[in-house]
Each structure stands twice: as structure tokens, then as C-alpha cells.
Design a protein around this nucleic acid. Sequence first.
DNA 1: ACCGTGCCTTGACTTAGATCAAAAAAGGTG
DNA 2: CACCTTTTTTGATCTAAGTCAAGGCACGGT
Lengths: 230, 230
Amino acid sequence: MRKSTSAIIAEVPLFNGLPDDQLDKIDSIAVPKMVEKGSIVFSDGETANGFYVVADGTVKIYKLSMEGKEKILHIFGPAEPFGEVPVFAGANFPANAQAVTKSRLLFFPREAFVRLIIDTPSLCLNMLAVLSLRLRQFTDQIENLSLKEVPARLASYLLSLSKEQGIEEEVTLPISKGQLAGLLGTIPETLSRIFARMAQQELIVVTGRRIRLMDRDGIEALVSNGKLLE
Amino acid sequence: MRKSTSAIIAEVPLFNGLPDDQLDKIDSIAVPKMVEKGSIVFSDGETANGFYVVADGTVKIYKLSMEGKEKILHIFGPAEPFGEVPVFAGANFPANAQAVTKSRLLFFPREAFVRLIIDTPSLCLNMLAVLSLRLRQFTDQIENLSLKEVPARLASYLLSLSKEQGIEEEVTLPISKGQLAGLLGTIPETLSRIFARMAQQELIVVTGRRIRLMDRDGIEALVSNGKLLE
DNA sequence: ACCGTGCCTTGACTTAGATCAAAAAAGGTG
DNA sequence: CACCTTTTTTGATCTAAGTCAAGGCACGGT
């Protein structure tokens, strides 16, 4: 049974703590939109006139190099907003967005949303919190990309997944390994080799998208010292 | 002649368009702070109870690797705010801040500032714009780090400097070449070699911190196709 | 002018990871 | 279940950039 628009809105952290009448207003400006797997939600540089919230499904935000290599910036799932940057600064999207699976989105037109924010201080603070959190994540990504090598990035990703999924011993990749390579700033071949090496060192056991964390301490050590034996 | 606190506040883009009485309130919560060259303003992970605005001088925001390598995230000059993230999400600073030169800062205590934001919608929108702009810059940095190689990053930095300084033919590096290496996500040796190659290809002429842009089209081509001949 | 300390450059070498090519698994569909 | 597509793995090779080690340069202080 599919949730109603208003039921989804009530679950979005961005709208947490708002009085019911404000939630109703938000509901009234939301425009539902279904997108098929693989369809482009928006493209880098395109003029934006609003932002989105994922109701169902998964959306990836990414940049493309000249040669077509893909760097994934975010993977967003239910209740997560995306594409908010051009609502507040600049007029165009800073990256591409594509549906990873068939998804239901809510679109919030810029003008109406800004009006709403202006007379809802707590919505404004929520939005500031969302953007601040993103900045934190980006700070980590930049740190990982320029200060750590791929094994450490993968290890740190696995640990964050395990935290997020609330399971100590095993995690399930939410995306394909090819996509994961793009998220970690590398390519599938390299990622595959590193999975193999981590398995050989008995840090993990890989079964498709299931990763069993055999040696949590070892994985943590890998995050900090970065060295993975051959 | 040194500007007064209130004169500085009036020039900060974050406070643009605010009525005078609001500017006075901002002035009243600002705490001036002098820092010597090289002194640490805050450290990664430290609990934050407010953010800063540069009044005079230059401050760098950076991350350190285990081995001591430094990745600079931002270089901030007069009228630019920094350290705002923990005001709105999380409790601690996500990176380090150090004065590059002797600097005068204004400190804004979190609680008082949040109160101010709550009843000043346009201040809130300004802050949203600041954070959104940062996200845009970080998006570019991530793109550069994972999708482009060092020559393209340097070329794109030089072009952005020329735009910022409003001079077509020549730019002046605002930081040492060693620091620039940290900003571009590389090391001084590599940066030095690439400067040499760009000079040899007659794209630029380097004289200390002065870089003369001899072949703007060539530099732009380097940004997009990334290839720099030996 | 001299000398040091920090900054920058150059050279020889090593290495992580990308590229190219192809085989092997895994999945979905009729 | 056989077929076709997509994903993943493996192997061989290449290259951008990091490391290590010296020199050279330049600026500020005595």
C-alpha cells in the first residue's frame, strides 16, 4: 500500500517539528512525479525552479568527466531532499540527478517554498541543518579523496554502512559494485581487486552484495593507517 | 586606519540587505579577536560554540592526513564567514582553521546568533545562500579531485583567480606555492613541475607569485581536455 | 654584506591506480 | 531452460603523481 503525499511529508526530517498547518501548506505546494529507472531528473547546469524529495526509490547525484567517467556525490533514498542548492544560490543545478530505480518524487517549486521558509523559522533552521550536514559529508569526501587511498575509503564506507544499517557483522550494498566504484572515486576493476585483497586478508567475506565483516578491528585499522597487504 | 567592527559588519555579504537595527544587534553580539600569524583558530573535532567572520587577514580551513599531509578546503579573506557548519548541525568543527597572516576576526556566539536568525528571515536566507555557495564550491572540488588531473586543476584555479582579481593577463597567487599545492590536492614538488611544464608550453610565465597568462585559450583547453604536453 | 631558515625547484625512483582486453558470473526474459 | 545482456573479475601493461634526496634561491635579521 503506497503512502499518501502527506504521510511522506510527515516523515521527512527537513519538515520535522513543524506544526500541522505548516505541513498542510507544504503538502499543498508539493508536486508528485513518477520517474522510471534510469531516467534523468535534472542535468548539470540546467536552470532550476525548485528542488525534490524522494518519496520512494533511489536517486543518485553525480558529475561526469569529459571522457564519461562518473563520480557519484550522493545516493538519496526515501525522505531525503536533493537539488536544494540552486533554490538559495545560483540558478542552475551543480550536478546531474538520475533515478537508480523506479521512483516517486515530490517536487517543491522554488518561489512557493522560499515564501514558506520566510515565515517559518523552524523550517529555515531545518534547512540550514540539512545544508550543514551536506557540507560535513562533502568535507569527509574531500578528505577521503585527497588524503586516503582506495582501500581506506572502502573500509570507511563499509563501516558507515554497518552503522547506518544497524548491523555489526554484515552489510548489504545499496548499489551495484560498479556504482560503488563511482561513489568512492575509483573504477570497477580497482574496486574488485581491493575487495579481493580484503577478502584474502580475511577482513571480509563477499557474497554478491552481501559483505560479512569478519575483522572489524582490522577494518578500522585500515581506515586509519590506510595500508592493506597484497 | 582600521575599520570599526560595525563598518566591517556592514560589508559582510552574509549581512547584506539587513535593516540598521538588525545590524546593530549583530554588532552587539560580535566579539573581536586578534590572532597572530600561524595561530590555530579551531581544530578538527573541537566543540564549537559559535562561528567567525574575517575582519582583516587570511585564514585557511584544512584537513590533515595521518602522515601530516595537508588538504586546504578554503582560504578566507575579509568579510567571509567560516566555521558555520556546527552552528546548525553537529556540535564540533569538521576541519581545522589557522591564521595564514596576523588577522582580526569577529566571533559570533551560537546561541545569540541563532536567536537573531529566527526572527530575521532575510538573515536566514542569506545564510542559506552562503551554505549553498559552499556546497557548490565543494561540488567543484570533488569533481576536480576525482575527475581531473593536477594540470587541469591548476589551470582552472588560475582562471578563477583571474576572474576574481578582474585581470585578464596576470594573476597574483594569494598564498605560497606550497599552500597552493595543498589547495589543489597535491604536493609542492608536483606543482612545481607542472608550473614548469606550463611555462615551457608558453601557456604562462611565472615570476614568484606573479603568473602571467600568455595563452588564455590554451589554458582553457587544458581545463577541458586535461592534457598538458611534456 | 653575510648567513641562516624557509621556500622552491630538479632529478632519480617507486607505486597506486587507471587502461585495455577478455573471460567468467550473474540476472532477467521469453 | 536456454539466451542475451549486464555486471564483475582477472591479467598484463602504462602512467600520473608521490617519495626521497639534493641543490638553489630569496628574504629578513644581525
